[in-house]
């Protein structure tokens, strides 16, 4: 009986993870190394990978900055009432619960060309939806809880004592943050960054809705894979997917390393 369960577990693991991954790898080289290279060197593929890269960089930076600030305010701010903090705390988790497609749709409805705010931005020549800013906002929406949820527990655990000790020793806000708070949370931040990068690399639904998936303009790597499959260009889709998968595996390794360092001070 026990053997059966062990066997079943491995079977599920293989069917769900190993087989698709190998299928992608094999499929990518269906037309040999040359086929793989051509698929990746198509102008639309290069552009899509560049878009994904840009989104990852911008989103990781913004999410890092605001995620850390949000975590600090939710844990430390005395000027927020406990009730309000509780409400904010639950709202942070909203993107976990809401489907990314719906998140994207909300952005289109709020900032689309037909909306008031979107119309205003359009008027001053700044396109939000179906352009880069909208894609960043959509990805930010999806990744926002990741950093906050990594940093908050660490802040709660270290408590306020060390920061107050720094204050009685003459250190003001920035010095205290740089010398006392930051060294304690840095590995949680690294972990949060890894999660954010992984999530923004693979984000599909929200970006698809917001970007309009315009080739050579707002297409990202994931939406390109989707389009390649639609066009029965499976080998090319596998090629791009393999690049994304390789990045993810690399991130996983970094994640393991960060996780180990997180507990060490």
């Amino acid at each position: 009986m026990r053997r059966l369960w062990i066997g079943l577990t491995y079977a599920v693991f293989t069917i769900l993870l190993i087989i698709p991954l190998s299928r992608i790898a094999v499929g990518a080289f269906e037309h040999g190394l040359d086929g793989f290279a051509t698929a990746l060197l198509r102008p639309e593929a290069l552009h899509a990978l560049m878009m994904t890269g840009l989104i990852v960089i911008v989103v990781t930076f913004l999410n890092g900055l605001f995620g850390i600030m949000m975590a600090l305010y939710l844990v430390r701010a005395t000027w927020l009432s406990r009730k309000l903090k509780g409400v904010l705390n639950s709202i942070v988790d909203l993107p976990y619960a809401v489907s990314p497609v719906i998140g994207g749709l909300m952005i289109v409805l709020l900032l689309g060309p037909d909306s008031i705010i979107g119309g205003f931005f359009e008027g001053i020549g700044f396109k939000v939806v179906y352009a880069f800013p909208g894609m960043v906002i959509a990805t930010l929406f999806v990744t926002f809880p990741l950093m906050v949820r990594e940093v908050m527990p660490v802040l709660q655990e270290i408590g306020e004592d060390q920061e107050q000790a720094a204050a009685t020793l003459g250190a003001y806000g920035w010095t205290t943050f740089a010398k006392v708070t930051w060294p304690s949370i840095r590995w949680a931040v690294v972990y949060g960054i890894v999660l954010t990068v992984a999530r923004s690399l693979g984000e599909f639904g929200a970006v698809l809705v917001v970007s309009g998936n315009i080739m050579n303009h707002t297409q990202t790597a994931t939406t390109l894979v989707y389009q390649d499959v639609e066009n029965f260009n499976v080998a090319a889709a596998n090629g791009v997917a393999l690049v994304l998968a390789a990045f993810s595996v690399g991130l996983l390794l970094v994640m393991e390393w960060a996780k180990k360092r997180k507990g060490v001070h």
């Binding site: 408590g159 060390q162 107050q164 000790a165 204050a167 009685t168 006392v180």
Partner: peptide, 20 residues
Amino acid sequence: IPPQERGIGFVFQSYALFKH
């Protein structure tokens, strides 16, 4: 006057040493 300027030393119950 904020704690930084009061010229006091404070020893916390938990010591609150900077652990890094």
